[in-house]
């Protein structure tokens, strides 16, 4: 019961965050709403026992990528951007209703054709989604490619630095 309540709270906040990102007029506000959304999605992963993906979601998306977004936004000259049109509520409501209808119809068609995937049980998710399972696979079976990717990234970093130097060597 508590898990269901948690799910609905997180889902509602996630949708609110997504909507807030869409309708806010200031790009920085948009980015902050998106962070809220990403955090809630990470929470949803947690309720599904996918702890590793939840942590990665926070670290990579809410952390690294959002910082990058914010940097780019702040580097832009916001005043020079074209003025965003006012949000038109009637179009918005029409959009939401029509998308809802579309998804309902698709669901009916898909379930009658029997192509919908079976929902995974929480136990199955817990078996494959934890950091422990992932690490065992990554550092034992895939240890060699993993190390090699380290070298690949190092080479790419060195190359990026060398090639972007203005003066040729």
């Amino acid at each position: 019961m508590a898990a269901q309540i948690l799910f609905f709270v997180l889902a509602t906040v996630a949708i609110a965050g997504a909507l807030g990102m869409l309708v806010s007029r200031n790009p920085v506000n948009s980015a902050l709403w998106l962070i809220l959304n990403l955090f809630c999605v990470a929470g949803l992963y947690l309720t599904l026992n996918a702890t590793f993906i939840a942590v990665i979601q926070v670290l990579v998306y809410a952390g690294a990528i959002m910082v990058l977004f914010l940097f780019v936004i702040m580097l832009l000259n916001l005043a020079a951007l074209p003025d965003v049109r006012r949000f038109e509520w009637r179009k918005g409501v029409a959009y939401v209703l029509s998308m809802g209808l579309l998804s309902m119809l698709s669901f009916v068609v898909a379930s009658s054709l029997g192509v919908l995937p079976e929902p995974q049980s929480l136990q199955a998710a817990a078996d494959s989604g934890t950091a422990n399972t992932l690490a065992k696979s990554l550092f034992v079976e895939f240890a060699l490619p993993f190390e090699m990717i380290g070298i690949l990234l190092l080479a790419a970093t060195i190359g990026a630095v060398m090639l972007s130097k203005r003066k040729p060597v």
Binding site: L144, P145, M148, I149, I151, L152, A155, A156, I158, G159, M162, L163
Partner: peptide
């Protein structure tokens, strides 16, 4: 391993 090897080789050759 094919893919990682191929990419490591290619990235270094681009550079």
């Amino acid at each position: 391993t094919i893919f990682v090897g191929l990419e490591t080789m290619s990235v270094c050759l681009y550079i």
